[in-house]
Design a protein around this nucleic acid. Structure first.
Lengths: 147, 147
DNA sequence: TCCTTTACTTATCATTTGATAACAATATCA
DNA sequence: TGATATTGTTATCAAATGATAAGTAAAGGA
């Protein structure tokens, strides 16, 4: 079996995913926050309660810079921070109500654009898509143990 | 049919794709170029002959900034630029031999990491993956006509 | 020919992001 | 208890990127 075509398709595919992500998220970010701040809010929105270290590890932002951006988000009233009772070195970060509202609005726009693309499809087609996503997620794009 | 789970899976999946892209491309960029310059080189490498306008449109970089970065890449000897004979307003950009070497090295590292993940799989599994990629590419992540 | 549009360049400035050093507070472990 | 590791903060600086105005040159159309 010739393996080269699969890698080429993989590269083209990931490019398409990045491209679509860009299109589908165009303009959803309010101008009061920066792209980096948006990505942090997005992470907090989907993950729930998180620490600065987690954000730093998952988004590849240094801890000092993470701290700085969180501080700005707190100042803007989008996040709140409190000391973890079980380990007072740690801080828990979560969205404020205002932060929730902002992110819900963003996600709603994204979801609407997603269904613009896929809403017309039959149940069978949507099921196929769901299965394809699950297959790729589990076999290729899953997390790996760090060495 | 409840549609919400599909969107959730879509979001999780695109996050995984971005995550894997980050991991698999870690450190492949030489320190002599910036991330933005790398993304331009990558685009030129896969697309072949391109114009600044194309780069600007596809990578969402303003034309002035595209022009600036191309100039730097030319200075570093990674790209070359020449006036299109059929329309002398346009410039064609392509990689120099040195640019080719740099990008081939980068792609080789990325490919090696890709096969680290998938090389152990059976032909049937790889075929499944290929089909799933093709399905998603054609039904969800394809380009759309601009309005 | 003249006017308009297109493709690109140059210059400049502000903002965002990245990197690093130094520090404080708490927890862990010998 | 005292040394060490962990978690996070603050401050500072440099680099990368984004945005905009103004200009050049060529093409295309009235």
């Amino acid at each position: 079996m010739d393996k080269a075509p699969l890698f080429q398709k993989f590269v083209r595919f990931t490019t398409s995913v990045h491209q679509l992500t860009h299109e589908i998220t165009m303009g959803v970010r309010e101008d009061t926050i920066t792209p980096l701040q948006y990505s942090i809010l997005e992470y907090v929105a989907v993950t729930g309660l998180v620490t600065p270290s987690q954000i730093s590890d998952c988004l590849y932002i240094s801890l000092p810079n993470t701290s700085r951006e969180i501080k700005k988000l707190v100042q803007k009233g989008l996040c709140e921070k409190y000391t973890a009772p079980e380990d007072r070195r740690m801080q828990y970060i979560r969205l404020t109500d205002q932060g929730e509202v902002m992110m819900n609005k963003a996600f709603a726009t994204i979801e609407a654009r997603f269904w613009e693309r896929t809403g017309h499809m039959s149940t069978e087609e949507l099921t196929e898509i769901e299965q394809a996503i699950e297959l790729l997620e589990s076999k290729v794009f899953h997390d790996r143990q760090p060495l």
